[in-house]
Design a protein around this nucleic acid. Structure first.
Lengths: 334, 334
DNA sequence: CTGAAAGCGCTAACAT
DNA sequence: ATGTTAGCGCTTTCAG
């Protein structure tokens, strides 16, 4: 099945390749009768434009690169879904790379995507510091939007949830339902999500109890850490465990169950992100829902603007307000 | 920052573009001294080959399309991860599309990927029947491997887990641990995974109890269905619920908890797939682990063979044996 | 072993 | 409104 090209369509419709190109790309006005003939011929021959040729000539592939640290992190599938749908709706295709939390692999993937001439890049950086050089270099070549995590100031446009606002929602809710001895089970990394949530806890927890800001256990964003962290704070007799994300909360719940603690009777547990598991845990986990669809829409809009405006304009850092989802894990005690 | 091209490298290294191309692509022998000069010049100028041009000329983009029904289905992230890693290891890039369980969108994405000149396609078909035409048409144009689900016989190479073997592992395990009144909570679709697991249950359950093959509730592959299905079979006083996948098992567990049934004391529960949630549920869910990395490796190998061999050879349907993962949800009663 | 030259399929000036 | 023509950057004959 030989590929049918513009020439073939031109021959079949009795006009020049330029005209055919104009009809199919809609770049310039064309006589209605000619246009019809061209379209019929194209249809009849089953013409499919060769995007490689188009890309070579027009210096635009209609493709954006998406670089993630770990697709298996349960927060990302929903983000990928929304991003790819938003991008596809604009006729763009998505080149996907999962760098497995390795900044070195990340740099290589970014490089490869650039050499494949992506029009733009969407990056969730693997590491606040070590991703920086590669991201900055890439941002100098194509429009680039950072998502979910930052990697230093002034690097590129960025879109993320307002972590501080989310943590404030949690603390307000716990205060309103009578919790006072709160503890924070968090992550110690420099990743922006970890740092911002930690800082917001420290800033807001004092309103509940003067000792609260100091009651924290810092580890990683994982279920295992959630289990381990409970043991580190259990002696403090907390009545609420504020977790930096849902995975930690799931782990905490498991360990509390082993210890025979009643949730929410003895202690409330809260998470962050609202991954699917948060709703399915027993009890359901009160958490902060990231507005994933809106994050994706903002990111693609930002890209669209840069792509249209030749990269002009000041850098933007967009923060979207999250929403508190109250479930059983923080129900008020009777 | 103007792009540096082969010409620039040629000029800088004092030889022709042809020679530079040969050095960088390694297609033909080149004098060692010239090669060194070329490589140095390329390095110094920061040369990056333009893949669009390369693709246009060589009729190969080094890109494969990956079409999924739903990235938010918790089984797929791990598969995507393994597939992209395997493909990247061969220097290929991955164009990703999520068709949201819609065969029509799936057909459009496949079409788009084809016009972007992917070298090959990896497809998890959205629907056994309605995906068929688009997949068959695509398979006629590029090497295509079906994964996880089929879509009719004779369409393309395929790689999937051996669902019948997996179900047999579950039934053997339940028999060995003294369960007799088993019920099946399954999916009614024509999707191959649903049909094969259902058939394997029907075939194998008779060995436990003559009535077992008839005790089944059929719905969808979801948590909600798992919850609802328990009520439909509860009157039969089952001592084991065999679920068609882990999501159903999670739902069943939730409903059993509400009913005050003890798992595994009163009733065992098993799943299929071994998604992350299966390990994290309470109790942990006994399930059938799909060999995801091996599935990905087989699929990429199949593609590689077709890509090298110009599409020759008989169609292959590869089935990989799964592994039983025993957790608390099916622990023997004391 | 190396260079010159011919395109891959398409779009964008430049003509008409 | 349409046709002609010149490439985009690269690989690949074909000569030397």
């Amino acid at each position: 099945m030989a590929d049918v090209t513009l020439r073939d369509v031109a021959r079949a419709s009795g006009c020049s390749v330029a005209t055919v190109s104009r009809v199919l790309a809609g770049t310039r006005p064309v006589g209605p009768e000619t246009a019809r003939r061209v379209r019929e011929a194209a249809e009849a021959l089953g013409y499919r434009p060769n995007q490689a040729a188009r890309a070579l000539r027009s210096r635009s592939t209609g493709t954006v690169g998406l670089v993630l640290p770990q697709i298996t992190n349960p927060f990302y599938p929903a983000l990928v879904r929304e991003l790819t749908h938003a991008l596809h709706a604009e006729g763009r295709a998505v080149l996907f790379a999962d760098c497995d939390d390795d900044p070195k692999a990340e740099a290589e993937y970014i490089d490869d995507l650039l050499s494949r001439r992506v029009d733009a890049l969407l990056v969730v950086p693997a590491d606040e510091h070590r991703s920086r050089d590669a991201v900055a270099a890439a941002a100098a070549r194509v429009p680039l939007v950072l998502m979910d995590r930052g990697c230093g100031p002034g690097i590129a446009d960025s879109v993320a949830v307002d972590n501080a606002a989310g943590m404030a929602l949690v603390l307000d809710h716990l205060a309103a339902t009578g919790r006072r001895r709160v503890c924070y089970l968090g992550a110690d990394g420099t990743a922006s999500a970890a740092a911002e949530r930690r800082a917001a806890y420290a800033a807001g927890a004092a309103a509940l109890d003067p000792g609260a800001p100091g009651r924290l256990a810092l580890g990683g964003f994982s279920v295992e850490w959630g289990r381990a962290a409970v043991d580190l704070v259990w002696d403090a007799r907390p009545d609420a465990l504020v977790c930096a994300n849902d995975l930690i909360a799931v782990g905490a719940l498991q360990r509390l169950q082993q210890l025979g603690a009643d949730v929410p009777g003895d202690v409330a547990v809260t998470g962050f992100d609202d991954i699917p598991m948060a709703a399915l845990a027993a009890p359901g986990i009160t958490t902060v829902r990231q507005p994933v669809a809106e994050l994706a829409a903002e990111a693609t809009q930002l890209l669209g603007r840069r792509l249209a405006g030749r990269g002009e304009g000041p850098q933007r850092a967009i923060r979207l307000a999250p929403e508190l989802v109250v479930r059983e894990s923080s129900a008020p005690r009777p």
